[in-house]
């Protein structure tokens, strides 16, 4: 049975669109780091950070190390291809602003021992875009 030639570009476009839509359905983290178990009475909160500088598992691990030792941080999920970090924490002990500050602080390179500055920059916090060097605008 004959098929029109235009079918080929149409199929190409359809599959590209299906791929883009499909990518929304298969979200999985590049890295999961559990810092502490949630205490029974606490109501954990989850904040979503989009962080410039997070681009792979290695950089996500660096970002995760920034949270090590912060009281109240329970879990981090990194989505490297989206530069996104989801942090679950106890809001009674730490807040999102402190987490942002921790991410943007000097990063200790575990291999070289050097401190690296301005490696990470939080550009979006809980859906609110952040102007460089400014506090997030109120929604």
């Amino acid at each position: 049975m004959k098929a029109p030639a235009w079918l080929v570009p149409v199929l190409v476009v359809l599959c590209a669109v299906a791929g883009v839509i499909g990518s929304r359905l298969a979200m999985a983290p590049s890295l999961v780091e559990v810092f502490a178990e949630a205490s029974p009475n606490a109501e954990p909160r989850r904040s979503v950070f989009v962080v410039r500088g997070v681009r792979c598992v290695d950089t996500a691990e660096m970002a995760a190390r920034q949270l090590a030792g912060i009281d109240g941080v329970q879990r981090l999920e990194a989505f490297a291809s989206r530069a996104r970090l989801d942090v679950t924490y106890d809001p009674a002990r730490v807040d999102a602003a402190a987490l942002r500050e921790a991410f943007e602080g000097p990063v200790h390179d575990a291999n070289s021992g050097e401190y690296l500055f301005d490696l990470f920059e939080v550009i979006e916090m809980d859906g609110v875009k952040i102007e460089s060097g400014r506090e997030p605008e109120s929604p």
Binding site: S23, P29, S30, V57, A80, S81
Partner: peptide, 9 residues
């Protein structure tokens, strides 16, 4: 989990 910088896309 995804490898390195690869993702769902």
């Amino acid at each position: 989990q995804f490898s390195c910088s690869a993702g769902e896309a």
